[in-house]
């Protein structure tokens, strides 16, 4: 009984990437995305190399391409924005098929698409190889403030509980003949949301009291996994490659 969103992004495996300490993976993913974003958009080849570097990592992690491709659907709204860019931008235009489109808008759309896709793929690769509680542990080791780590770890711990609660409410609605169809379903959905809030809040109160009676003092031990050793930082290979590609693209652009 796991909710529709559950931990469906995680792909169970035992590759070297899966075994890396989470803080190393988070740092590597963030730096790589920064390198991608810093790459000048005119250097189309550089984005190909970025993609290649990322594909190598995904291959080592043995995450199937189809698994990631299905989850890239999340990017669709950004692709829509990228596609509209050439049409709503101003400035000099050029013909593209039957349309006259803005050159600058075309570049902006391309940059949005390329950088957005690489960013989403990086985040998917991180999520596919790292369990949610490990992400929280990694963030704590990267010195995220304790309160935020605490809220986050509770949120992840109770996510399945709340999404199953939501699922039970949906089943209850549907077994009484309710179908979500257009605006007339909104009052029902809204009272579901209201009831979910009250139930979650009351559950939170019960859990808090139970924890206090067991000596909770505002700190949660997230458990020690071994901290990152020298070899683990080999993961820096990905962001270093990305940075090298971005730097080369800038230099070749300057030489033009």
């Amino acid at each position: 009984m796991s909710g529709p969103h559950g931990h469906s992004l995680h792909f169970h495996g035992h590759s070297p990437i899966h075994r890396l300490p989470p803080e190393v993976k988070i740092a590597a993913a963030l730096t790589f995305v920064a390198a991608v974003v810093a790459t000048p958009r005119e250097a189309v080849w550089a984005f190909g190399l970025h993609l290649l570097a990322l594909v190598v990592v995904i291959a080592v992690a043995q995450v199937p391409a189809g698994f990631l491709a299905r989850r890239m659907v999340i990017e669709v709204p950004f692709v829509v924005l990228a596609v509209t860019m050439p049409f709503i931008s101003t400035g000099p235009t050029r013909p593209l098929g039957p349309f006259e489109v803005s050159v600058a808008g075309l570049w902006a759309g391309w940059a949005l698409f390329a950088k957005g896709s690489l960013g989403a793929l990086t985040a998917l690769a991180l999520a596919a190889t790292t369990e949610a509680p490990d992400v929280v542990r990694g963030l704590a080791r990267l010195r995220l403030p304790a309160q935020i780590v605490l809220i986050m770890s509770f949120m992840i711990r109770y996510l399945d509980v709340v999404s199953t609660e939501l699922r039970r409410m949906r089943i209850a609605r549907e077994s009484r003949g309710h179908a979500v169809r257009g605006i007339r379903a909104w009052p029902v959905l809204a009272s579901t949301a209201g009831a979910l809030f009250v139930r979650s809040y009351e559950r939170g109160e019960r859990v808090h009291l139970a924890m206090l009676s067991r000596g909770f003092q505002g700190r949660v031990d997230l458990g020690e996994g071994g901290s990152a050793g020298g070899r683990d930082w080999l993961a820096a290979a990905l962001p270093l490659t990305g940075a090298a590609i971005a730097a080369t693209a800038w230099l070749s652009g300057a030489g033009r």
Partner: peptide, 18 residues
């Protein structure tokens, strides 16, 4: 804020740079 961080890192929704 926490929801957005978790969405970006765990569910890859919303993007890291955004």
């Amino acid at each position: 804020t926490v929801v957005l961080i978790v969405q970006a890192l765990v569910f890859a929704d919303g993007g890291l740079t955004a």
